[in-house]
Design a protein around this nucleic acid. Structure first.
Lengths: 241, 241
DNA sequence: TAAATAGATATTTTCGAAAATCTGGATTTT
DNA sequence: AAAATCCAGATTTTCGAAAATATCTATTTA
């Protein structure tokens, strides 16, 4: 299409980062497994420098561990860590949501509503598929993130938003392997949960919105706990939040 | 002493990281100024790779900014950002302190007391010097950090501790240039503030400890605000927390 | 046999040249 | 004159070989 010779869209470091991140979050690279530079060079067709920079970035996001002269490994999964992430996320986002509800303007409301619709449409679509392709699941994740971020985007604190993003990534890792597994239990209507959170938010009912959001996260944690078999395969199947 | 030829203590990346971090926090590298690889290579006598990795790490700590193919700059300072960091820190550490007070055991109490003494001794020593050498100020910073971290170390949340560390670094940047400037106003007895926080903490009076800690941070913010001359030199002088 | 040592191999870390990309100024075009 | 185009120089990014370090295995020593 575009005439240029090899118009690289981004840096190779960015490419390495995206691919590694995906392979870790999706579970393709198993928790705990070592990340040998030579392997990665092979696997992604990239040089040492971009790989190394990507690995360092992932280290700062806690997706990979790194020991001084012994290289990198995929960060392990554990229920304890999962609950820490969930609880901390509730603490951070409760405050962020409170402030967003206080400060949010019309554009913010619009973005929240728009993000909710984008998410619910995609969710409905995926529900009807039997084995949604990876691309679709990735897209669902994006919209899910966009919705939760939109809720708190008007909080006026870069630090709270930053921390929230970090925790989103972390929890994504626990949710993802479970997505698209055995049909999410009918006992939970995620779209409804999202809608209720949105409604309370738009209605500027901070306490209610916070309570609903917290419950939403806690329920997801519980679902994941239930599905998590420490000693079997890393994780089994069926949740989202 | 040790016989080995050139027994490198750490990786060069670590060295680059420490030196750059110090030069940024201490203000030697001015906020906003560009960080050209060639310069840094010269200045620190290191190659591209370790410098780049260190810069990426500092980027994740928000001490440097980076734009895709345009390199790195020292992150700017602003009162707005400073207050965001202070407020967020209060929110994070209030929760962490509450939990530490709930969960902390004897070893934790011991560490808190020990850290307090280490800090107050060093502070007293520095107060009596006219122009404390950089090394001493660095040591004071370390002990200060150790004290505040000890307070919350028993909170049982790696994420809260992680975020607290991040915010410590950020606020350090605002405090440091001001340290050792015009003698800290006698209107503030920092050692006393620290002691009161410690006492309430050890007494397991969570509400009081949190109130004192929050006030401690807020006061520091106010001191820094007062000393901050947006259009003059980056910052002027006289605070700590 | 267990511990210690040494050599061989595997792996990470670092280097500086080369490739890719950006920037600013001069030149051309509208 | 203003906008667009095209250089030359500056700077970042990437590469793969070389150096440094860790790990494993075989051998020796106690």
């Amino acid at each position: 299409m575009s005439g240029k010779k090899n118009p690289r869209e981004t840096t190779l470091t960015e490419e390495a980062y995206q691919k590694l991140r995906w392979d870790i979050v999706s579970g393709t690279l198993e928790a705990g497994s070592p990340l040998r530079l030579e392997n990665l060079k092979q696997r992604y067709g990239l040089g040492y420098s971009p790989l190394r920079e990507a690995l360092n970035r992932l280290h700062s996001e806690r997706l990979v561990m790194s020991v001084a002269l012994r290289g990198f490994t995929v960060a392990p999964l554990s229920l304890t860590e999962m609950w820490d992430a969930v609880d901390t996320r509730i603490h951070i986002e409760a405050e962020a949501l409170r402030r967003a509800i206080e400060f949010g303007d019309d554009d913010w409301e619009t973005e929240v509503i728009s993000a909710f619709h984008g998410l619910s449409l995609k969710a409905k679509k995926l529900e009807q598929m039997d084995a949604p392709p990876m691309e679709e699941m990735k897209a669902l994740e994006d919209r899910h993130h966009r919705f939760h971020r939109a809720l708190i985007s008007a909080c006026r604190s870069n630090w709270l938003l930053d921390f929230s993003d970090k925790l989103y990534v972390e929890t994504e890792r626990y949710r993802f392997p479970v997505l698209g597994g055995p049909r999410a239990r009918p006992s939970r209507d995620l779209t409804l949960e999202h809608q209720e959170i949105m409604d309370a938010t738009i209605a500027r009912d901070a306490e209610k919105a916070i309570a609903l959001l917290s419950r939403h996260y806690r329920r997801t944690g519980e679902t994941l706990s239930a599905r998590y078999q420490p000693d079997a395969k890393p994780m089994a199947a069926g949740a989202s939040a």
